[in-house]
């Protein structure tokens, strides 16, 4: 039975049979669930209530789910799982490129969706945890910034700044991935290591997801994907951040 403090999942799908199935299953497993049929309902709900995770269909009556996903990612770091019958590889890749945290093709088993929701929430919280700790306890350890190649990543605010001091939005997973690279500069990190360090080992995240996340992170860092200067591909092995990284404790 869901309690007021239970995680609030928002289902965006216009198929009543899917909404009934997912609501029923998640409520039985202790979640609070809201259902909206379209993009308009999604934005209204986000205005009115606090949501912990969005399960998003792609074929909606008023707006393409991929556009919604991109707009969501541009304005928040709410975790998004795409649940769609458009299950081709290209759809999955585009969905992840648009900023979704995971993608589950229909037909699906509700238990698998539940496992993925829990996994994404765990991953998101493990990313957020240092920030929460720093805010609650004013821990000096997390009150740091990384300086690299003229860029700055401010940990307490999770804000990335260009060399021109422009703010760059990072999603939760992008922040986590960049921090991993910054903690291991000039070291080749395999996809397995990146998965492990990003605390997503238990999820069904596959190697390709890391490739997509690196690709998104490169775009945030304004890298040319054909000749990246900062995050370089090491063929057959993984990726390496090629930069001198300085950790600054008091950046205020």
């Amino acid at each position: 039975m869901a309690t007021a403090s239970a995680d609030h999942i928002l289902i965006v799908d216009d198929d009543p049979d899917i909404c009934t199935l997912v609501s029923r299953f998640f409520e039985k497993n202790g979640f609070r669930v809201s259902v909206v049929p379209d993009g308009k309902g999604l934005w209204n709900m986000l205005d009115q209530a606090s949501v912990d995770l969005i399960v998003l269909d792609l074929m909606l009556p008023d707006e393409d789910g991929l556009v919604l996903c991109r707009n969501l990612r541009a304005t928040s770091d709410l975790p998004v799982i795409i649940l769609s019958a458009r299950g081709e590889d290209v759809d999955r890749i585009i969905g992840l490129e648009m900023g979704a945290d995971d993608y589950l093709p229909k037909p699906f088993h509700p238990r698998e969706l539940l496992a993925r929701v829990r996994s994404v929430l765990r991953r998101t919280r493990s990313t957020m945890q240092p920030e929460k700790t720093a805010r609650t306890h004013n821990s000096n350890e997390e009150n740091i910034a990384y300086h690299f190649a003229g860029w700055r990543l401010d940990v307490p605010t999770r804000q990335l700044y260009t060399p021109q001091e422009e703010k760059v939005f990072l999603s939760g997973s992008e922040f986590a991935l960049l921090r991993i690279f910054l903690n291991y500069p000039n070291q080749v990190l395999t996809r397995e290591q990146l998965l492990e360090y990003s605390a997503s080992k238990e999820s069904e995240t596959y190697d390709r997801t890391i490739d997509m996340q690196v690709s998104r992170l490169r775009r945030r860092l304004r890298e040319d994907s054909r000749t990246p200067e900062l995050i370089k591909t090491v063929r057959g092995l993984g990726y390496v951040l090629s930069a001198r990284v300085e950790k600054v404790g008091d950046h205020t």
Binding site: D15, D17, I18, L21, A85, K106, P107, F108, H109
Partner: peptide, 17 residues
């Protein structure tokens, strides 16, 4: 058809998908 594909197996009815 698209909706049946998406829902059947979720309800445990793979044949409908």
């Amino acid at each position: 058809g698209h909706r049946m594909k998406g829902t059947g197996a979720g309800y445990g009815l793979d044949a409908i998908s």
